[in-house]
Design a protein around this nucleic acid. Structure first.
Length: 424
RNA sequence: AGAGGAGUGGCAGAGUGGUCGAAUGCGGCGGUCUUGAAAACCGUUGUACCGCGAGGUACCGGGGGUUCGAAUCCCUCCUCCUCUGCCA
C-alpha cells in the first residue's frame, strides 16, 4: 500500500499517477487518507495523554498500597472510573479510524512510474520492441490443441474427468517437455545468480495481504476453507513473503530468489472464445524470479530481469515482443510492468508468457520489509518479480512454431534436457 | 489426532500482580590502556506511533478478558519440544 507520508508530500503527483490508471475519484480518496490520518493522530494524542494520567495514578496507588495506606488508595481508585471510560471510547475511536484508513489504503493501487503511458486497456500498451521472425509454416499447419491430440502429449479430456476444465494431463513427451523446460529455466536462473527455493504452495491470509492478493482478489484464488489457506496464484506470493517482517542487511541487497511451483487461478469470469487449449488454465507450471532491491537500484534490476527473460525467449528461438503496460492494464500493486509475448504462429496471435514488474515500496510497506541505510535510517526496500517463464503458452508456441510435416522439432537448448529431438 | 511441557530484547536466560522496557551473561558499538591486537576496565546498545521539543503511548508468540495496575491471573488461537497414535 501507499505510504501516507508520500501522499502528503506528493499529492498532485499521486493524483496524476492514479489518473493514468483511470482510478476513480483519486483526489477524493487520497484526501480521505490524509484526513483519516490526521484524525488518527489527534485521537492518539488525546488517548495517550489520558493513558499517561491513568498510568501515573496506578503508580501512585501502588506506592500507597506498599506504605499500607489502604484507605487513601481506595479514594484514588474511585477517581479512575471516569478516566477509564474515556480511554475506552477513545481507544475504540482510534481503532475505527485506523481500520478505515487501512481499508482505504488497501484499495488504492500503486502509483505508476512516470514512463507508464496513460490508457485504459491493453490496446493502449506500448510496444517497446519486437524480436525474431514469424516462421513459415507448411500448408495445413495446426493450432496446438490439434497438435497435442495428434501426438497424444496433452490430454484435456482426462483432466476433465479427474478434476475439471483447465486441468490438463501431460503425457509421455508432453510431460517430459514440461520437465525439461522447468529444469532449463531453473538452471538459467541459477546461472544468473538466483537462489533456488521451494516454497509452500498453500499460503495463509497474512501472506495474501503481504503481496496484495488480499483483500478483494480472493475470488481469483482457490480457497481451502477448512484451514483458511489459499492455493498460490504465483510463486511471487510465498517467495516474497519469506521477507515479511524482516529487517535485511543493506549489504545483502539485491536478494535474488527463483522458484518453480505450480500456480492455481480460478480465472472466474475470464473465459472467452479465444482461450482454447493451453492459452488459459486453472493449474499451470511457472518458474518465477523475485528480487528485493535497494530503492536506488530497482529500475536497473527491472531492466536486468527484462533482459534475462528476453534471453530465455531467444534461446528457445521464439519470436517475441515486449510491451510496456499502460496505466489501466498495469497490475494493482505494480508501478511498472513489462509483458513479454510470444507469437503463436498457427493461432496468429500474441500470447503473454511473462510479466516483469517493479512494485517499488508498495508491497514492502505491507510486508514491513526494510533495511537500515548507512545513516541507520530505516528504509523500505523495493520488490520485483517476473515470470521466467510460465510454461503453457511457451509449450503452445514451441509446438505451433516448430511444427513440420514430419513432426515437431524441439529447440536445441532443450535437447540435452529432453533426451529427444522430435515429437513425432 | 490425543496427553504433557514451553514460547521474554541479536542470542542465551532471570523474572509468577505494583516505579519491569524488563536482572544477568554473551554478542554489537564507543572509549581507556597498548607500537598494534588480545585481555581487563568504563560507557552504550530494541521497534513502532504521537509530539517542534521536553517527553508520552504501545509492544515479553497473536487476539481477547479480569484488575486502579498484567511479562506475571483467565479465555482463545498459533508455533515449537517430549511421549502415544497415524502416515508419504
Amino acid at each position: 500500500m501507499l505510504q501516507v507520508n508520500f501522499i502528503r508530500d506528493n499529492f498532485d503527483q499521486a493524483v496524476e499517477g492514479l489518473n493514468k490508471r483511470f482510478f476513480p475519484d483519486a483526489a477524493q480518496k487520497l484526501q480521505d487518507v490524509l484526513d483519516l490520518d490526521k484524525k488518527r493522530k489527534e485521537t492518539q494524542l488525546e488517548r495517550d495523554q489520558l493513558q499517561a494520567e491513568s498510568n501515573s495514578i496506578s503508580k501512585k496507588i501502588g506506592m500507597l498500597m506498599k506504605e499500607g495506606k489502604k484507605e487513601e488508595a481506595n479514594e484514588v481508585k474511585a477517581r479512575t472510573a471516569e478516566i477509564k471510560g474515556q480511554i475506552k471510547s477513545l481507544e475504540e475511536s482510534y481503532n475505527e479510524t485506523e481500520e478505515s484508513l487501512r481499508t482505504l489504503l488497501y484499495n488504492i493501487p500503486n502509483i505508476p512510474h512516470s514512463s507508464v503511458p496513460a490508457g485504459k486497456s491493453e490496446e493502449d500498451n506500448e510496444v517497446v520492441l519486437e524480436h525474431g521472425d514469424t516462421p513459415n509454416l507448411y500448408e495445413g499447419n495446426q493450432a496446438h490443441w490439434e497438435l497435442i491430440k495428434k501426438y497424444d502429449i496433452i490430454d484435456f479430456e482426462l483432466g476433465n474427468k479427474i478434476t475439471g476444465a483447465g486441468f490438463p494431463v501431460y503425457k509421455g513427451k508432453g510431460a517430459r517437455l514440461q520437465r525439461a523446460l522447468v529444469n532449463f529455466f531453473l538452471d538459467e536462473a541459477i546461472k544468473q545468480g538466483y537462489n533456488e527455493v521451494q516454497p509452500p504452495i498453500l499460503i495463509n491470509e497474512d501472506s495474501g495481504y503481504g503481496t496484495g492478493q488480499l483483500p478483494d482478489k480472493e475470488g481469483q484464488m482457490y480457497h481451502a476453507t477448512a484451514d483458511n489457506l489459499f492455493l498460490i496464484p504465483t510463486a511471487e506470493v510465498p517467495v516474497t513473503n519469506m521477507y515479511r517482517d524482516v529487517m535485511i542487511k543493506e549489504a545483502d541487497l539485491p536478494i535474488k530468489n527463483t522458484a518453480f511451483t505450480p500456480c492455481f487461478r480460478r480465472e472466474a469470469g475470464s473465459w472467452g472464445a479465444h482461450v482454447r487449449g493451453l492459452n488459459r488454465l486453472h493449474q499451470f507450471d511457472k518458474v518465477e524470479i523475485v528480487q528485493i532491491s535497494h530503492p536506488d537500484k530497482s529500475y536497473e534490476a527491472l531492466e536486468d530481469m527484462s533482459q534475462y527473460v528476453q534471453g530465455l525467449l531467444k534461446k528457445l528461438g521464439l519470436q517475441y515482443r515486449v510491451l510496456r503496460l499502460c496505466g489501466g492494464d498495469t497490475g494493482f500493486t505494480s508501478a511498472l510492468t513489462y509483458d513479454m509475448e510470444v507469437y503463436s504462429a498457427a493461432q496468429g496471435m500474441w500470447l503473454e508468457v511473462s510479466s516483469v514488474s517493479n512494485f517499488e515500496t508498495y508491497q514492502a510497506n505491507r510486508l514491513k520489509l526494510r533495511f537500515k541505510d548507512e545513516n541507520k535510517k530505516t528504509v523500505l526496500a523495493h520488490t520485483l518479480n517476473g515470470s521466467a517463464l510460465a510454461l503453457p503458452r511457451i509449450v503452445a508456441s514451441i509446438l505451433e512454431n516448430n511444427q513440420t510435416e514430419k513432426g515437431i522439432k524441439m529447440p536445441e537448448v532443450l535437447v540435452p534436457y529432453l533426451g529427444f529431438e522430435w515429437i513425432d
